[in-house]
C-alpha cells in the first residue's frame, strides 16, 4: 500500500548507497538542525542536553558543522554548552571535595589500620559525579536508533509488495549491517530470499567493477579507459560493508 513511509523509501532508493543509512542520516541531521533553529533556549531540551553532557563525538561535531554551514557562527551551540560547562564545574567541585576527604582519611592512622585489614578500602577512589560523567546517552543516538528500528520494521513489511520490490531492485541495495538487521524482521521465506538475492546481485556487480579497476592499474592495460562504475567501486565497496558516509568528514 502506498503511504508516506513507502514514499520516503521510494525517495531513499533513488539516492546513492543504503536507503536505511540515508533515511537515518537525514533524520539525525533534521533533529540537529531543528534544535539549533528553534529549541536552543527550550528548558526541556536543555535539561536533556545537559544530562548527556552534550552529544556523542559524532553528533557533537555534526552540530558544530551544521551551525557553521547554516549560520556561519556558533551562538546556538555556545548557548547550549554554557549549561554543560557549568555542570562540569559542579561535578569537578564535588569530585575535588570527595578526593580531599579521601586523602585526609587516608592520612589518619586509624583509617590506615582499617585499610590494612580491609585492603579494598585503602585503594578506594571516589565515584565520578554527574558533570564528570553523563547521566544519559546522546539524545541524537537514542532517537536515531528508535527511528532506525521503525524504518527496518517498515521495510520488512513493505518488501512483500511488488512495486516496492521493483523500486528496491533499482536502488543500490542495503548495506550488510542493515541487511542482517532487516532479515531479523522478515518471516516470509520468499521475501527473505528476494532481499538476499538483490544484495548478492549488487555485491557481484561491484566485485566485477573492483576487479576491472584493479586490472586496469596494471601497466599492460593502463590504456584501457576506466568507467565511472569502476572508479566508484572502491568507495561503493566500503559503503556496502559499513554503510553510507554520514556527515561530510
Amino acid at each position: 500500500m502506498l503511504d508516506f513511509a513507502a514514499l520516503w523509501f521510494k525517495d531513499a532508493f533513488q539516492h546513492q548507497g543504503c536507503p536505511i543509512c540515508y533515511l537515518r542520516a537525514r533524520d539525525d541531521a533534521r533533529y540537529i538542525f531543528t534544535i539549533l533553529y528553534e529549541y536552543v533556549t527550550d528548558g526541556g531540551v536543555r535539561a536533556t542536553f545537559v544530562n548527556s553532557l552534550g552529544y556523542c563525538s559524532e553528533h557533537a561535531w555534526a552540530q558544530q558543522r551544521t551551525e557553521v554551514e547554516r549560520w556561519g557562527d556558533g551562538l546556538g551551540t555556545a548557548t547550549m554548552y554554557e549549561s554543560v560547562l557549568a555542570q562540569n564545574l559542579d561535578g569537578l567541585d564535588e569530585f575535588i571535595r570527595a578526593t580531599r576527604r579521601a586523602m585526609a582519611r587516608e592520612r589518619s592512622p586509624i583509617w590506615r589500620g582499617i585499610a590494612r585489614v580491609v585492603r579494598r578500602l585503602g585503594r578506594a577512589t571516589p565515584a565520578l559525579p554527574f558533570g564528570v560523567v553523563p547521566r544519559a546517552p546522546c539524545r541524537v543516538c537514542e532517537l536515531g536508533a528508535q527511528g532506525e528500528r521503525a524504518l527496518l520494521e517498515t521495510f520488512a513489511q513493505k518488501i512483500g509488495w511488488d512495486e516496492f520490490r521493483a523500486w528496491y531492485r533499482a536502488s543500490d541495495g542495503l548495506c550488510l549491517p542493515h541487511l542482517n538487521a532487516t532479515l531479523e524482521r522478515i518471516a516470509d521465506a520468499d521475501a527473505r530470499r528476494f532481499v538476499i538475492e538483490v544484495t548478492l546481485e549488487k555485491l557481484e556487480a561491484n566485485a566485477v567493477a573492483l576487479r576491472e579497476y584493479w586490472r586496469k592499474h596494471d601497466y599492460r592495460f593502463q590504456d584501457e579507459p576506466i568507467t565511472d562504475a569502476e572508479r566508484q567501486a572502491w568507495r561503493r565497496a566500503v559503503e556496502q560493508f559499513v554503510g553510507n558516509r554520514r556527515w561530510t568528514q
Binding site: T77, A78, V84, L85
Partner: peptide
C-alpha cells in the same frame, strides 16, 4: 571557545 567546549566534552 564553543569549539573548544565541544572538544573538551567529546
Amino acid at each position: 571557545a564553543w569549539i573548544r567546549a565541544i572538544a573538551f566534552q567529546v
